[in-house]
Computed example of a mutant assay.
Amino acid sequence: MCGLGGSERMTYRIGIIGSGAAPTGSNVPPAAIREIAADGFAPELIEPRLRTFPMTPYDRGLTALAYLDCALEAEKAGFDAVFINTVGDYGIDEMKSATGMVVVGAGEATMAMCVNTGRRFSIVTIWPPKLNFIQLERLSSCGMQDRCASIRNVQEDREVEGVEQAAATTASLKDRNESLKRRIVDAINAAVSEDGADTIMLGCTCMAPVGPDVAAQVNVPVFESMRTGYKTAEALLTLGVRHSDAAYPKPNPENLSAVGALVAGQGNMDLGGDCEVCVIPEDES
């Protein structure tokens, strides 16, 4: 691991990439992060210049490029860490290779916490099976397939066919809708009793508003991905360590400007990408 000289710093800036909301022009992070940020840490929202949602593997590649651009710009601006505020961890390996900051993804960090507190975990996600490719990629890349008992989907594909249904779901999450929370709790209980899970990972950071409520209603550890991932970033900064350069070799410095040039060449491009399934309204409190 590479030292950061953490003890010499009084305040650490953590860039939050991915708000789960439409662009606001603000640097205010989601409420769940504001509520748990410790003294000495300054989380700030960073909005991507290229906006799209990874509904397909192709779109996922565009999202990774957009998030990598955010990380490169964050390092130039003096941030100490970036937190990828999505279970998909888009661009995480590229960020670790290209930057010297602490880089944490919500998905990777939460899976690691699950296996530190149990033997097998299940992912319980509000979204339907057609989006499971996001979690499956993370399980494969993180080597967690054998530790994951199941992916439990709270909704079916027919329930989320477009933006309107997705917006209704996220509005229900924000309002802590009792019916939706009950469905999440039922999915958790089924993962434990039927799939053999002893630990639960909530499979989308948009579930942050209901995370504490559902955790209080079950008898196994429940890790909400936004809070867990953010706190992991704080922990690494406190310890003064980051990812290994042996695992993530540095690229040719001459190539680092290519990402920004590609993204900036099109200005602030919106490819229909105000996230169709992860919208947390900015007035969440």
Rank of each mutant, 00 (worst) to 15 (best):
T63M: 14
A235S: 14
V154C: 05
R34Q: 12
E35G: 02
G91P: 05
T86L: 07
R242S: 15
A264V: 05
L45A: 04
S141R: 14
V28C: 00
P23W: 03
E161Q: 13
E161K: 10
Q217H: 12
A149V: 04
G91N: 08
I33P: 01
T238Y: 15
V160K: 06
G40R: 05
E108N: 13
P212L: 05
L236V: 07
G273A: 11
E282Y: 02
S225K: 03
G265Q: 14
G18V: 03
S19Q: 03
S257V: 10
M10A: 09
R242N: 14
I46T: 02
I46D: 00
P23Q: 03
N116F: 10
G196C: 09
D283T: 07
A246P: 00
M207P: 02
C114S: 10
L131S: 08
Y230G: 03
M207H: 01
D213R: 10
L45F: 01
V277D: 07
M95W: 06
D213H: 13
P54S: 13
K130W: 12
S225D: 00
N219I: 08
R13V: 06
D270Q: 15
R51P: 12
D80F: 14
G229D: 00
A187M: 04
V218Q: 10
T170H: 08
R152W: 02
N189G: 07
I92H: 12
G3E: 10
M207F: 04
G203C: 05
G118E: 04
E224C: 00
M207T: 02
A42C: 08
T205N: 00
D213V: 15
I16D: 00
R13Y: 05
G240T: 15
E276F: 14
A166S: 15
L139Q: 13
N219F: 09
V241I: 15
D195I: 01
